[in-house]
Design a protein around this nucleic acid. Structure first.
Lengths: 98, 98
DNA sequence: GTATAATATAGACAGAAGTCTATATGTTAT
DNA sequence: ATAACATATAGACTTCTGTCTATATTATAC
């Protein structure tokens, strides 16, 4: 099925405290990078790095407006990844090959 | 709330392909360490290491029987961690402090 | 054009994490 | 007590990851 890498890209993205904090911020609404930076001690490049990880994992999406980039949470990704993951452990069909 | 560390211990545990594979195996039922080893190329100490990570995160539980240790999946942990995590992003109350 | 601002990228570095070999611990059998 | 087996732990090594500084990129303003 080779689905582990996908599932893991989500979970790896979410396995960092600062990234979860960013996600919680974005859960309140769209935010520019500098606005996000305002909530952390980390430097801007570190924030950009985390946003990149979240973006690659489809956990957040962004849109450009002028010189700013606005990020928003992709709740669908969070929900489907979590739900899908749970399901894998109740679905008896899986586990045949590992 | 300082809940991030807990949530992250689960997600860190789950953010590794081999650990997810172990979990999928255990979803089929209780298994001894050597049985688990039989499904991987990794050496036994590596398996034990991963089991330790999963155990610390409460993702699996174990019981000793003679010289063998049987591990089983703690579905409750998986479900509550995933559900709880999803909830944090729909619950508007959170996000006040980060 | 140059300057300034917002974000991303590159590279260095430290610390975390995964895998290995070797060994310790604990359990059963002889 | 000794041996054999199952599992865990310790330590070394390598790779991955998070953070930083410095710089590149892109957009606006002058």
């Amino acid at each position: 099925m080779a689905q582990e890498s996908d599932c893991c890209s989500f979970f790896k993205a979410v396995a960092d405290v600062n990234r979860v904090k960013i996600m919680l911020l974005l859960a309140r609404g769209e935010m520019s990078v500098s606005q996000i930076c305002g909530h952390f001690k980390m430097k801007q490049p570190s924030i950009s790095h985390h946003l990149g990880v979240l973006r690659n994992a489809k956990v957040v999406e962004c849109r450009k407006e002028g010189k700013e980039v606005f990020y928003r949470l992709n709740r669908c990704c969070v929900d489907s990844s979590c739900s899908g993951f749970m399901k894998r452990f109740t679905d008896k069909a899986e586990g045949g090959e590992v």
